[in-house]
Computed example of a mutant assay.
Amino acid sequence: MKYPINLFGYTVECEINIEGEKFEVDIPEEGQRALKQYLVRVLPKYGRESSSGSSLQSLVELAIDAEKTLDGKMVEPKLKLPYEFQPEIKEKLIEAASLQDISATQLLIRIIENKYQEVIG
């Protein structure tokens, strides 16, 4: 069954498989890439240096270490966009973001990251 999970302040769609007493969480490749990009962007805010060349495993280890030192959970940095949208576009962006339970800025960042991966990857 598909289910969104929050890892280190980032919500990613995953597939949950339960077979008997065995519980597995599978994150599709595109979700793993997005999580990796998120961690590269967010970890420096928590004093953990990373680069896009780091493995997903090392980034997750750094994120776990960062969260152990926090009182709460990691969060995605809030950005003020340096430009304005047409009101109808802004409404659509806000509506789409609320359906995914994220901010409009986070949704916009994800859209840009996905398009970047599509063009570059």
Rank of each mutant, 00 (worst) to 15 (best):
E29H: 09
L70I: 12
V25R: 03
Y46G: 11
R33I: 13
M74I: 08
R48E: 10
L56I: 13
E13M: 02
E30C: 04
E76S: 09
E24P: 02
I18P: 00
E15D: 07
E88T: 00
E49M: 04
G20F: 03
S98E: 11
L108W: 01
K73L: 11
I102H: 00
E61K: 11
Q117Y: 10
A63C: 15
L56Q: 15
R41V: 10
F8K: 01
S51E: 08
V42M: 05
I102Y: 00
K45L: 14
M74T: 09
C14K: 02
L99R: 05
Y10H: 06
L107D: 00
Y10D: 02
F85A: 02
Y38V: 04
I102V: 08
K22P: 01
K92A: 01
I109P: 04
L7M: 06
V12F: 02
Y83Q: 07
G31H: 05
A34D: 08
P77H: 03
I89M: 05
Q117S: 11
V40P: 00
K45H: 14
G72C: 10
I102P: 00
N17W: 02
R48W: 13
N17Q: 04
P77V: 08
L107I: 03
G47F: 06
V40G: 07
E24G: 02
I89E: 00
Q37H: 13
R33L: 14
E113N: 09
I94D: 03
V42W: 06
K115I: 14
E84N: 13
P82D: 10
N17Y: 00
L62S: 14
E88V: 00
K78F: 08
E29V: 10
D26Q: 04
A66V: 14
L79M: 12
L107R: 03
I109C: 08
E30W: 04
Y46P: 11
V75W: 13
T105G: 05
I89T: 07
E19R: 03
S50I: 06
S98I: 06
A104L: 01
P82W: 08
K78Y: 12
S54R: 09
A66F: 13
Q32P: 05
R48T: 09
D65C: 12
P87G: 06
D26H: 01
F85V: 09
Q86A: 12
D26W: 02
L62A: 13
K115Y: 11
D65P: 10
A34Q: 09
I109K: 04
P4E: 08
L35I: 02
D71V: 15
A66C: 15
G72S: 12
E61L: 12
N17H: 06
P28I: 02
I64E: 15
R41Q: 14
L56N: 11
E84I: 10
L62R: 15
G53R: 11
L81N: 07
S52E: 15
K80G: 10
V25P: 05
P4H: 01
S55I: 12
V75P: 11
K115C: 11
E113F: 11
K22A: 07
M1I: 13
K92D: 01
G47R: 09
D101P: 07
A96T: 05
R110N: 06
I112Y: 06
L99G: 00
I120G: 13
T105P: 02
Y10N: 03
K45W: 09
R33E: 08
L59T: 14
F85S: 02
F85R: 06
I111Q: 09
G53W: 15
